[in-house]
């Protein structure tokens, strides 16, 4: 009971703390200076149609590298936690219909995923979104057949190399363009604005991210799915 009162008190306290935000918050009418610079830069320096993408992949590229690392870590972490061999579940084989449909959808979803991450610099979406989509495709397969075994070496290979290439692209910028150019996408030609092959290394990076996210999330789901 006392605990309840304390919980209530705590939450009321939090509300009191946040109330000023709701009461006095006045929304900006303009972009911040930094954002405006991003918008300008995205057009002029990076040739990237999607400003969010240019922010994510380039300006705040280190964040994104970190983010990928976080995902990677989670894969490793989940793998580490659930490192014991998982037991095969005895399940009824799923119906023919489900299997066929899922395999059909699988290809479709994968393709959509690839589209999304390769067009990250042009349209909404990008590596993460594409990666997640790819994962859903695998999830579908797993749901259709719980005892499905993936080819882990390929999965690991994709996971590792997409990560390594990402880092290497970063380092290329650093090696070619100087010490302030880690993750600089301008190592590749910027191309024409609004085209698929534009924005320098951004689509490459985003694709690698897509692959990495896809393979990692798949691994996570696979690991957890068996438990």
């Amino acid at each position: 009971m006392i605990k309840r009162i304390f919980i209530l008190l705590a939450l009321v306290g939090l509300v009191l703390m946040f109330i000023p935000f709701l009461r006095d918050f006045d929304f900006h009418k303009e972009l911040s200076k930094l954002s405006s610079q991003y918008v300008e830069g995205s057009i002029n320096d990076l040739n990237t149609q999607n400003v969010v993408t240019s922010v994510i992949v380039t300006y705040r590229g280190l964040d994104t590298l970190g983010e990928v690392t976080v995902l990677f870590l989670t894969t490793a972490g989940v793998g580490f936690l659930l490192r014991k061999k998982k037991a095969s579940l005895k399940t009824r084989r799923s119906s023919e219909l489900l299997q066929t449909a899922s395999q059909f959808l699988f290809v479709l979803i994968i393709l959509t995923g690839i589209f999304i991450f390769t067009h990250g610099h042009l349209t909404p979406g990008g590596g993460f979104q594409g990666g997640v989509l790819i994962t859903t495709a695998f999830l579908l397969l797993i749901l259709a057949d719980v005892n499905l075994k993936f080819n882990y070496s390929i999965l690991h290979f994709v996971e590792s190399f997409s990560g390594v290439f990402y880092v290497m692209i970063g380092l290329f910028g650093f090696l070619i363009l100087g010490m302030n150019s880690f993750l600089d996408p301008t190592i590749l030609p910027l191309g024409n604005y609004g085209k698929l092959l534009s924005a320098g290394a951004i689509p490459v990076i985003y694709s690698l991210i897509g692959l990495k996210v896809g393979s990692e999330l798949t691994t996570i789901i696979d690991k957890m799915g068996g438990e």
Binding site: L34, Q37, Y38, G41, D45, T58, Y59, G61, L62, G173, L177, N180, S181, F182, L183, D184, P185, T186
Partner: peptide, 8 residues
């Protein structure tokens, strides 16, 4: 990083 200086 990325060829730009802070705060960009």
């Amino acid at each position: 990083t990325a060829g730009f200086s802070a705060p960009l």
